[in-house]
Simulated scan of single mutants.
Amino acid sequence: MSRISTDDLHILLIEPSTMQRKIIMHQLEDEQVMAIDAVRTKAEALEILDRIHPDLIISSLHYEDGSADQLLKFIRSDGAKADIPFMLISSETRREQLEVFKQSGVVAILPKPFNRDHLGAALNATLDLLGNDEVDLEMFDIDSVRVMVVDDSRMARRHILRVLQNLGIRHLVEAVDGSDAIRKLQTEMVDLVVTDYNMPEVNGAELASFIRHSEMHSHIPIMMVTSEAHEAHLKNIRQSGVDAMADKPFEPETVKQMLVSLLDRQ
């Protein structure tokens, strides 16, 4: 096991408000984060990213020369920077405005204003993502566990895969949606399916229903990772046969606990 601490983190903070920058920097320093590059604009952020590789980017939603979703899209498309953890701080509450971030594998979305608990949990999620903390299972050798990850968002899949790899899982199968997962399950034997809910053709609930009604696959545990907040949708998800649900964005420690629970009960 290897784990860094908050005082090892190098953070790039993008916040156009001078007052908000000072407040956030003070809160980070209270969490023992001392290496902070603070900028106001997208251009300044890109200039720093040309020179350094921060451990975490913390960003406001809007800048005078762009927005966080534009910056995140650029980062995720750059092979050298694609895996940098990204944390959004915003007063935005509209689901459609935040969905792009949830589907891009952000480590956290913090409200404005946020409290110390919010920040502490987000920093811990970052540390979990950057470190390695292999799962200790009673029923399985973690090196032998096979997991299928199903999500139509490449960036979300990449984030989930990284979390699972940090937990010691090496045998990973990717599916781009529910129909692709069903095809691959005809030839791939897996111990766990981790799936998104919203997908074209065959969604997560329909995939779960297929697995539960299949003689060959009905025993496979299913973890649903979803940004759905609508109670009717959540009820449908629960009734489709999933064994565990995690919100997007999720904390890696939550996935670890679910993984242990799902695999060691078989």
Rank of each mutant, 00 (worst) to 15 (best):
Met1Cys: 08
Ser2Ile: 13
Ile4Met: 10
Ser5Phe: 12
Asp7Met: 02
Asp8Leu: 00
Ile11Arg: 01
Leu12His: 03
Leu13His: 02
Pro16Asp: 15
Pro16Val: 07
Ser17Thr: 12
Ser17Pro: 05
Leu28Pro: 01
Glu29Leu: 03
Met34Lys: 15
Asp37Cys: 04
Ala38Pro: 09
Val39Trp: 00
Glu47Lys: 12
Arg51Gly: 09
Arg51Ser: 14
Ile52Thr: 15
Ile58Ala: 04
Ser60Thr: 00
His62Asp: 10
Glu64Thr: 15
Asp65Cys: 04
Ser67Gln: 08
Asp69His: 12
Arg76Phe: 08
Pro85Asp: 02
Phe86Glu: 06
Glu92Met: 06
Arg94Ser: 13
Glu99Met: 13
Val100Tyr: 11
Val100Trp: 08
Gln103Pro: 05
Ala108His: 01
Pro111Tyr: 01
Pro113Asp: 10
Phe114Trp: 01
Asn115Met: 04
Leu119Gly: 03
Asn124Met: 06
Ala125Trp: 02
Leu127Asn: 00
Asp136Leu: 11
Leu137Gly: 03
Met139Lys: 09
Asp141Glu: 14
Ser144Trp: 00
Ser144Pro: 00
Val149Gln: 03
Val150His: 09
Ser153Arg: 02
Ser153Lys: 05
Arg154Cys: 00
Met155Val: 15
Ala156Pro: 06
Arg158Pro: 00
Arg158His: 10
His159Ser: 11
Gln165Asn: 11
Arg170Pro: 01
Leu172His: 02
Ala181Tyr: 08
Ala181Met: 05
Ala181Arg: 02
Met189Pro: 03
Asp191Thr: 01
Asp191Trp: 04
Leu192Thr: 07
Val194Phe: 04
Val194Trp: 03
Asp196Gln: 08
Asp196Phe: 11
Met199Asp: 05
Glu201His: 08
Ser209Pro: 00
Phe210Pro: 00
Ile211Gln: 06
His213Leu: 07
Met216Asp: 10
Ile220Glu: 02
Met224Thr: 03
Val225Pro: 00
Ser227Gly: 14
His230Ser: 09
Lys235Cys: 08
Ile237Gly: 06
Val242Ser: 08
Asp243Trp: 02
Ala244Ile: 01
Thr254Ser: 12
Ser261Met: 14
Gln266Leu: 11
Gln266Arg: 15
